[in-house]
């Protein structure tokens, strides 16, 4: 069974008095434990689509099911609860919480979202910090580590709740090439180890090649689907 099913998905919003059709009748399916990329120029609808899949926004029309849940009808609180249980997020600007250490940042979703017991929490945080190679920096604050290290911490934070799906909007945009590949490698490694589905958006053609399935978006429409044997 597919992890994500989108059928005739559209999103229209108003920008001032102008009606903008951000997504126009998208239909696709994404299987569990896949490594998927959405590519396209700025304004093609990548972020809007990730926002819909991540239950941060609702489609104007169409059906969107994530892990067998119709997320297009979820209200604020159920949507937040769903995100907390099923989805991990990686942001372009890392978005680590500056007053928390690396260890605490990774543990935040377990502590504040899932209320995981202390012992279990510690085990999962340390294991993920080890996996992303940040265990030694666990007591550092975000302003004491580099951009690449921040994004590795963000990957660990996204995975700490064992989500079915991790969404990453331009995760390598603020990183140099070497660091960007390293972050993508970590994401792939985690996908293979944990069976998590990763969906990321990018306009970096070299990074795109790392994805198993590449969807191309143009002007809010699905312009192509390419399967990569990586």
């Amino acid at each position: 069974m597919s992890l994500i099913t989108a059928h005739d998905l559209s999103k229209t919003y108003l920008k001032g008095e102008t009606k903008v059709e951000a997504l126009k009748g998208l239909s696709f399916e994404i299987e569990p434990a896949s490594f998927v990329s959405f590519v396209g120029p700025s304004g093609s609808g990548k972020t809007t689509l990730l926002n819909l899949i991540g239950c941060l926004d609702k489609p104007t029309s169409g059906v969107l099911r994530v892990d067998d849940t119709d997320v297009s009808s979820l209200n604020t609180r159920p949507a937040a609860a769903f995100r907390g249980r099923k989805i991990g997020f990686i942001f372009q600007d890392f978005n680590l919480i500056p007053v928390l250490t690396v260890y605490e940042n990774v543990g935040y979703p377990l502590l504040m979202v899932q209320n995981t017991p202390s012992r279990e929490r510690k085990k999962r945080i340390l294991s993920l910090l080890e996996a992303v190679g940040m265990a030694e920096k666990k007591n550092k604050y975000p302003d004491q580590i580099s951009g690449g290290q921040k994004q590795r911490v963000a990957v660990a934070r996204a995975l700490v709740t064992n989500p079915k799906l991790v969404l990453a909007d331009e995760p390598t945009a603020n990183l140099d090439h070497k660091t960007a590949y390293m972050v993508i490698d970590i994401m792939k490694k985690m996908k293979n180890e944990l069976g998590t589905t990763f969906i990321f958006s990018t306009h970096d053609q070299k990074i795109v090649g790392e994805a198993e399935t590449i969807y191309t978006l143009e002007d809010g429409e699905l312009a192509g689907r390419e399967v990569n044997n990586v």
Binding site: G54, L56, T76, R77, A80, A81, F82, R83, G84, R85, I87, G88, F89, F91, D93, N95, I97, P98, Y108, P109, M112, V113, R157, A158
Partner: peptide
């Protein structure tokens, strides 16, 4: 505001 957006996105409930 961005921090609030981040914690809300990763599933922190409005009450928290």
């Amino acid at each position: 505001i961005r921090e609030i957006g981040t914690i809300a996105a990763i599933g922190t409930l409005p009450g928290k």
